[in-house]
Design a protein around this nucleic acid. Structure first.
Length: 823
RNA sequence: GCCGCCAUGGCGGAAUUGGUAGACGCGCUAGACUCAAAAUCUAGUGAAGGCAACUUCGUAACGGUUCGACUCCGUUUGGCGGUACCA
């Protein structure tokens, strides 16, 4: 009887569905294991063979943990709001709900056809009002805690998409060929900066890839330094505006090197700095205005793409250096960014590359105030010296090492109220609104007097209305602004007329907390019950691609910490262990893409070889974390392997192979069984998830037992059980045919091994002379070292290499080798 | 530019963490079965030399540490990912 994978796979998929085999139990007495895949966006293209790699890996872990007796939660759902469906709606007029649902159905069909053991009863989708009710509710908690606010800021506006983008989203969209320009707009912001320090520190407690943690650290960008106040000189030639100011105007700057204050030979303001107009003298006004105008029209993209060639103009004003009362000229330049620090810097060309470049170009003096310590040398006329060293020409800190000098300057600044030590972060607040239709509406109303209010909790969810125009209207308002019957409402409390907030939330909102909803997907009273949250959290294993290292993974940590502070969740971090699977490339070793024509569709692979072959091959391809090319030939190998297993257990007539007998495995047969259990178990448990070697261990085991004339039944049972997480359909079928009477192999116990039975009685060791292998010998296991040495030295062949030579050293490693060093 | 990761047969990749390099699979070669092919099975397969047993070389390149290095250290080259005027 042939291995009919299609029939077997459909049969067991139906069985699992009907019996709800993978439903997580609400049995809190059992140890739990929560294994989660990154929330997928159901694209209209469906899966390519890259997707099942991660899903298969988590599925193996889920199935393995079930056999190890854990109560496993392995859910799946949809991050279903998103631009593609809305863009498609604009083009075709088809409601995004319809296209999205179609995509979800297709994704789900494909995932099921791979035999993934999801608890489908817990499926959620962010577009479901029952789900986004709670996304809105969490927003209300953020708002009430003062973490959500509106601000008129320069945003990243993308004209093609008709929406603003978060800083984190900009590079991706530019890569896709969209343009992004700066433009001031009133936007919702979330104060993620308030959590910057904790988001940074708590990274240390996470078992995450070091590269991802490092990327988050860089993104948060903590730097220690000082804010220093410079007085602006009231120059006689100052413009009229300056005179009107009356009091003293001071300029605050941030620096990480307060020890270089003595080397500050000029100041730079960002062109957008509010002081620019106030301090510019009449003489320089025209030049400054032109420069400002140019800077405004440069998009961020242009600012970045341009050569690092410095530009700038002098304002005519001077500042007083607080440490030595020297006058330093104030320039403006777009190499200083308004968004970081105070938007103004003291420039120390001797010790900062950018300042050095600028000063060289504009012939501003370069002063040396730090000399390298030790043997290093520096020549600041040739380039800036940016390392730490010893302060020179620096008043009371002269002679101090950089670290000490910094401290002393900060103390002095604080004592004289001229500045203070501070910490700055690169991280900005999260721009949280989009001018889009297809997203969660904000639970917010605006009264005519400008009051902003949350809608009452009992009115949640604020539903998306039905519309027939999906385009952004006018100058960038969401299509929601064009629906008066939705837009206009009344404030319940006062009865006054009000308008709804027409922005919607970004796609990240729904994915910030979905891992919590899976714990309690039907709860209408709470977003998750405390009891369930306490039992299931945190997520034990979270698996997905590295591309979300700073976006989703930072946002979700932020929301989680807020919920923790409010007492709604019990863990400080949501995902204790994170793993990134590598990419599966096309057969040409390029990234799979439609345009390259190298996309492999899993449906075709399943039709040709079956889901079990697909799963096994995805794992066999190489280490999970590596990028590796797909190989159509390669899948033949695992397909043959599954066929061999089938033929080993089932004969031509469909009966169990008569060579399988109820005898005890003995000798080598027993040994290889224990060895295989150990190796497969260890490799599954391994932090590196080395499933490729698991598969090869199974192949070796099968090769060995198929040589036997009488095959002990236990060997076969072990094979089928070990195979179950990897090729579950075939394992179920064989288990069933072998007389497994429990219906499914899913909850059968994972085989145990006896370490003492793995060791061989006779092992091969090597004899080396001067490190070169000269002979291989079979000796008894654990032969003591002296005897081992003697055996090797007495070997005839060894003797030919040793005769007439002087023995200098003898190295003996038990069970491994003997190395004799001669002269 | 800076930060992080990587480099092993014709190909994907193993290597008990300093101790038999190339497991397992693909591909290829030969044989068995067949009228023939496919499938299947058996044997071989890093390179060079030799009829052979065997010998020499071999983990990107060069150097170092060590009785012994794919593994540790230094330099160089090539590739991948991230980031980019963050003061």
């Amino acid at each position: 009887m042939k291995y009919n994978f299609t029939e077997i796979e459909q049969k067991w998929q139906k069985f699992w569905d009907e019996n709800k085999t993978f439903a997580a139990a609400e049995d809190y007495s059992k140890p739990k294991y929560y294994v989660l895949d990154f929330f997928p966006y159901p694209s209209s293209e469906g899966l390519h063979v890259g997707h099942p790699e991660g899903y298969t890996a988590t599925d193996i872990i889920a199935r393995y943990k079930r056999m190890k007796g854990f109560n496993v939660l392995h859910p799946m759902g949809w991050d279903a709001f998103g631009l593609p469906a809305e863009q498609y709606a604009i083009k075709t007029g088809i409601h995004p709900r319809i296209t999205t649902q179609k995509s979800i159905d297709n994704f789900k069909r494909q995932l099921k056809s791979i035999g993934l053991s999801f608890d489908w009863d817990r499926e959620v989708a962010t577009i479901d009002p029952k789900y986004y009710k709670w996304t809105q509710w969490i927003f209300m908690q953020l708002y009430n805690k003062g973490l959500a606010y509106q601000a008129e800021i320069a945003v990243n506006w993308c004209p093609e998409l008709g929406t603003v983008l978060a800083n984190e989203e900009v590079p991706e969209q530019i890569e896709k060929g969209y343009t992004v320009v700066r433009r001031p707009m009133k936007q919702w912001m979330l104060k993620i900066t308030e959590y910057a320090e904790r988001l940074l520190i708590d990274l240390d407690m996470l078992d995450w890839p070091e590269s991802t943690k490092e990327m988050q650290r860089n993104w948060i960008g903590r730097s220690e330094g000082a804010k220093v106040t410079f007085k602006i000189k009231n120059p006689s030639q100052a413009g009229a505006e300056m005179e009107d100011l009356g009091g003293v105007l001071t300029l605050e700057i941030f620096t990480t090197r307060p020890d270089t204050l003595w080397g500050a030979t000029y100041m730079v303001l960002a062109p957008e700095h509010p002081f620019v107009d106030k301090i510019t003298t009449a003489e320089h006004k025209t030049a400054v205005d032109i420069y400002k105008e140019n800077a405004k029209h440069k998009s961020d993209l242009e600012r970045q793409a341009l050569e690092k060639d410095k530009s700038g103009v002098f304002t005519g004003a001077y500042a007083i250096n607080p440490v030595n009362n020297e006058e330093v000229p104030i320039w403006i330049s777009d190499y200083v960014l308004m968004g970081y620090g105070t938007g103004a810097i003291m420039a120390v060309p001797g010790h900062d590359e950018r300042d050095w470049e600028f000063a060289s170009k504009f012939h501003i003096p370069i002063v040396e105030v730090v000399k390298p310590a030790g043997t290093l040398t520096s020549d600041i006329t040739k380039e800036a010296f940016t390392e730490e060293g010893v302060a020179v020409n620096s008043g009371f800190i002269t002679g101090l090492k950089t670290e000490k000098a910094k401290k002393k300057v900060i103390e002095w600044l604080e004592a004289n109220s001229l500045g203070k030590g501070t910490v700055q972060y690169k991280l900005r607040d999260w721009l949280f609104s989009r001018q889009r239709f297809w997203g969660e509406p904000f639970p917010v109303i605006h009264l005519e007097d400008g009051t902003v209010k949350l809608v009452p909790e009992e009115d949640l969810p604020v539903m998306l209305p039905e519309v027939d125009n999906y385009k952004t209207i006018g100058t960038g308002e969401s299509p929601l602004a064009g629906i008066p019957e939705w837009l206009n409402t009344t404030d319940k409390e006062t009865g006054l007329p009000a308008k709804r907030e027409t922005n919607t939330m970004p796609q990240w909102a729904g994915s910030c907390w979905y891992y919590l909803r899976f714990l309690d997907p039907f709860n209408e009273e709470e977003f998750v019950s405390k009891e369930k949250e306490k039992y299931w959290m945190p997520v034990n294993l979270y698996l997905g691609g590295a591309e979300h290292a700073v976006l989703h993974l930072l946002y979700a940590r932020f929301w989680h910490k807020v919920l923790f502070d409010l007492g709604y969740v019990s863990t400080r971090e949501p995902f204790v262990r994170l793993y990134h699977q590598g990419m599966i490339l096309g057969e040409d070793s390029n990234k799979m893409s439609k345009s390259r024509g190298n996309v492999v569709n899993p449906d075709e692979v399943i039709n040709g070889y079956g889901a079990d072959s697909l799963r096994l091959f995805e794992m066999f391809l190489g280490p999970l974390s590596a990028s590796k090319p797909w190989s159509t030939n390669g899948i033949e190998g695992v397909y043959r392997f599954l066929n061999r297993i089938w033929r080993l257990i089932i004969d031509e007539n469909g009966n169990v192979n008569s060579a399988i007998k109820d005898v005890k495995p003995e000798g080598d047969t027993e040994r290889i069984m224990h060895r295989t259990i150990k190796n497969v178990t260890d490799d599954i448990e391994d932090m590196d998830m080395k499933f490729n070697t698991c598969v090869s261990e199974l192949m070796i085991y099968m090769n060995e037992i198929s040589k036997l004339e009488v095959i002990p039944r236990e060997n076969i049972i072990v094979l089928v059980k070990l195979l179950a997480p990897f090729a579950p359909h075939l394992a179920e079928e064989l288990w069933h045919r072998l007389g497994g009477n429990t219906g499914t192999i899913t909850y059968e116990s994972w085989p145990e091994y006896d370490a003492s039975k793995i060791e061989k009685s006779v092992i091969t060791i090597v004899g080396q002379v001067n490190g070169k292998i000269r002979v291989r010998l079979d000796v008894e296991n654990d032969l003591e070292e002296a005897k081992l040495l003697e055996t090797v030295k007495n070997d005839e062949k060894m003797k030919t290499y040793l005769d007439g030579k002087q023995i200098i050293k003898e190295i003996v490693v038990k069970n491994k080798l003997v190395n004799i060093v001669v002269k």
